[in-house]
Amino acid sequence: MALDGEPVKPETYEGDSITVEGVQDNQVTGEEGRFTAIGCGLWAQLPPLAPGAHSLRIHGQSGDLSVDVDYVLTVGASSA
């Protein structure tokens, strides 16, 4: 992960049991109702960003799962 070309170190959260309530035809199970899943992953907190354009790149792979996303974040000037 990189913000404006500088590395951002994410934190790893090991699996915790979570309860999810799905609506009919949801994208996870296709069924409505409650089910138990595992919530885990990498999380990053970004510092406050100065006004202007910023780039955020997220790239990673684990087994057959991969992600490669580039965001352009635009921060407006504060009116306060």
Rank of each mutant, 00 (worst) to 15 (best):
40 C>N: 06
18 I>S: 02
80 A>F: 02
35 F>A: 00
77 A>W: 05
64 D>C: 15
12 T>R: 09
15 G>C: 12
66 S>P: 00
13 Y>N: 08
71 Y>R: 11
45 Q>P: 05
75 V>G: 02
77 A>M: 10
50 A>D: 07
80 A>N: 08
66 S>K: 07
77 A>R: 03
68 D>W: 03
45 Q>D: 15
17 S>H: 15
18 I>Y: 03
7 P>E: 14
15 G>N: 09
30 G>F: 04
61 Q>F: 02
51 P>S: 07
32 E>N: 08
46 L>N: 11
19 T>V: 04
30 G>H: 12
34 R>Q: 09
29 T>H: 12
4 D>Y: 03
53 A>V: 09
2 A>N: 10
21 E>G: 02
63 G>V: 02
7 P>L: 13
41 G>A: 04
24 Q>A: 11
22 G>E: 01
18 I>L: 08
17 S>R: 13
55 S>F: 14
44 A>K: 08
79 S>I: 08
66 S>R: 12
10 P>C: 04
21 E>K: 06
43 W>C: 15
23 V>H: 12
40 C>M: 13
49 L>T: 13
79 S>G: 10
70 D>E: 11
24 Q>R: 12
77 A>L: 12
73 L>C: 06
23 V>G: 14
50 A>G: 14
25 D>T: 07
42 L>V: 07
47 P>A: 11
64 D>H: 12
40 C>A: 11
3 L>I: 04
32 E>P: 00
66 S>L: 05
50 A>T: 11
1 M>Q: 02
44 A>T: 09
32 E>R: 06
15 G>V: 12
5 G>M: 13
28 V>A: 13
58 I>Y: 01
3 L>N: 01
14 E>T: 02
55 S>M: 15
63 G>Q: 05
38 I>Y: 12
67 V>H: 06
54 H>I: 05
6 E>Y: 09
58 I>W: 01
1 M>Y: 03
5 G>S: 04
27 Q>G: 14
17 S>L: 14
50 A>H: 05
15 G>L: 10
38 I>K: 09
75 V>W: 01
26 N>P: 05
62 S>E: 15
46 L>W: 13
58 I>F: 02
6 E>P: 07
36 T>N: 09
2 A>I: 06
76 G>V: 12
14 E>F: 05
26 N>D: 06
78 S>E: 14
31 E>Q: 08
57 R>A: 02
37 A>F: 03
63 G>S: 08
8 V>C: 03
22 G>L: 07
75 V>K: 06
8 V>Q: 00
44 A>F: 12
43 W>M: 12
58 I>E: 00
27 Q>P: 06
6 E>C: 11
63 G>M: 04
4 D>G: 00
62 S>D: 15
15 G>M: 07
47 P>M: 06
34 R>M: 11
16 D>Q: 06
78 S>N: 14
37 A>M: 02
31 E>V: 15
25 D>K: 13
45 Q>E: 10
18 I>F: 04
75 V>Q: 05
18 I>N: 04
25 D>I: 13
52 G>F: 01
2 A>W: 08
43 W>V: 07
18 I>K: 02
3 L>V: 07
53 A>D: 06
29 T>G: 10
77 A>P: 04
72 V>R: 10
1 M>R: 03
19 T>M: 06
59 H>D: 05
18 I>P: 00
54 H>K: 03
